[in-house]
Write a protein that binds this DNA or RNA. Structure first.
Lengths: 138, 138
DNA sequence: CTAGTTGCAAAGAGTTTGCATGGCG
DNA sequence: CGCCATGCAAACTCTTTGCAACTAG
């Protein structure tokens, strides 16, 4: 259960990116959004991509695809791979991404694992559908 | 239960693409793979993209992201919109697509709808994870 | 000092768009 | 005939790579 964030080589760029994501837990950003944000500090686009890759490998950051525009999203998950797993819901109309922490879903994860032999990866799985806001608008 | 694939304008390119996907049910292709395949018949890349979009809108074809390389995948799902909703599980290792008909999952769909106000679209939603075969191999 | 990192710009992969031509209804 | 679809190429978006300068260990 111990995640070793073995980032042997430390650079200030790496620190800045990790800190920013850590302080924005539960929020997600595309690589380009991050690149844009760090441009002011003088961190180049390529560095953002390269550091994100390392952070994902280290387990500190989660990478997932929303399917919206083929742009990957990144978000801090830390060393605490919480067993419940946090699922994402993406609204097909307005694009909002909703984080779902729910016992009932965690139990389905378990059900599928035991009964169907399929081990769900909550970090990659995204539920598509219509959010309550958009439903009400209709 | 009848899905009307209302494709008012019919072209032979559209027919070719739909037929090909229908005859390859359970298989998935990227847009570029399809474009490559139809290049020999004289169908342009842009047409493949544009027709795929329409077929997805019509419900005949499902579009999903493997997350592997940010390339979208397409596969025939037909008019069989069974009300239970058939969920897909995609193995991250071997790429197998598993069709899941299960009461328990249908109930979660309902739960999320009622409790979280989010209306899941079973056709777009794909569970990512590791299938039993690949788990056993490890 | 050595090896990994940075930033820039250029290259790549996947997808979308503009526009003139062609085909369905 | 009018309108949408087609095909080509160019444009666009997201991501990766080459390379010289730089920096952590």
């Amino acid at each position: 259960m111990i995640t070793v964030l073995k980032l042997e080589y430390k650079t200030k760029q790496q620190d800045l990116i990790l800190e920013f994501l850590k302080n924005s837990a539960q929020k997600h950003f595309t690589a380009l959004e991050l690149a844009e944000h760090f441009k002011t500090v003088g961190i180049g686009k390529a560095t953002v991509y390269r550091q994100l890759e390392k952070l994902v490998d280290s387990g500190a950051v989660n990478k997932f695809f929303t399917g919206e525009n083929a742009a990957a999203c990144f978000e801090f998950v830390g060393n605490s791979h919480n067993e419940n797993g946090c699922f994402h819901c993406r609204c097909e109309l307005c694009g909002t991404l909703i984080h779902l922490h729910c016992e009932e879903i965690a139990s389905v994860k378990e059900h599928i694992e035991k009964t169907h032999g399929f081990e769900i990866n909550p970090f990659r799985t995204v539920f598509y559908g219509i959010c309550s806001d958009c439903r009400n608008k209709k």
